[in-house]
Amino acid sequence: MQKVAEIAQKRAIQLLNQGAVNRVLGWKKGEFPYDETPAVFASADELKDFVYDSFSSPNLSKYLIEESRKEGKVLAFLKPCDTYSFNQLIKEHRVNRENVYIIGIECGGMIDVVTLKNRGAVGLTGADDDGENITAHTLYGDVKVRKEEVLLEKCQACKGKKHVIYDELIIVNPQDEKPRDRFAGVEAIEAMTPQERFDFWRAQLSKCIRCNACRNICPACSCLQCVFDNPKSGVASKASPDTFEEQLYHIIRAFHVAGRCTDCGECSRVCPQDIPLHLLNRKFIKDMSAFYGEYKAGEDSETRPPLVDFSKDDVEPCIISDKGGDR
């Protein structure tokens, strides 16, 4: 991992010095040693702060909406799942592809800090990742855990190690594709009775404090003005008479990103209340694939997404209600 970061840093400096790119979008250390934060570097000197490690979970694609519209070219480091988001943004004409130089960077999965802390790594000062195990350094000594056990949810359900769009790749340790069941969580909810399901979501969504972090991080939520910020839309921030009213926010959001969500998992990662928001999106993804054939948003930048496409072979609405109704 350390080696990948060094190569990436070196290559970024090289491209900057050559004048091939004007800026670099990467990660630097945040307030804590484990909250790697997106950053734009404009010189070799600034790039000294560049980091890439098992805490570099933020998906940088969304930042390219702004960055790619500026003068000059920006180099962006994208992990495999981040490249799906970028492709989707190309499809929606939200980024200027010509102004972006993409380096696909190897990813062995990112660590969920909360889980790591729960496994005893309190007072975390850093961590080493050998691929199999994480050695967490803390104020009180080292804690060693199996990496698999402390992965972020989005990495446990990893879509794959393949970059779907890039200009060059940095891969030092080719990663094995492990069989992952992305939809087990959705299936568990589908198996519930309607009442259980309602209670589950009521409990989850009632925790929402409406901080909007899920929306602000989401690469699909790229509207110039979100309906929730538009007083004319009739759904903009109203005082909630009931905490559960936030359900509408999440459900409307899930509908708005349906067919466009690449399942990058950022919404659940940033939620301070640990609401499993990815489950809503994955339910849509699962159903869409069942109804209209396997579709992965962002796998390419041309295919018409099933929800804005129609063909004579589309399933009949009655078949959809058979599968999705109360039974």
Binding site: K91, E92, H93, R94, S222, C223, L224, Q225, N230, R304, P305, V308, D309, F310
Partner: peptide, 21 residues
């Protein structure tokens, strides 16, 4: 105009080809 993202979703669903960018 002030709300349009230019994402083409409308263009794709328009059965009459009435929307352009």
């Amino acid at each position: 105009e002030l709300l349009c993202n230019g994402c083409s979703a409308c263009e794709k669903v328009c059965p009459y080809g009435a929307i352009s960018y």
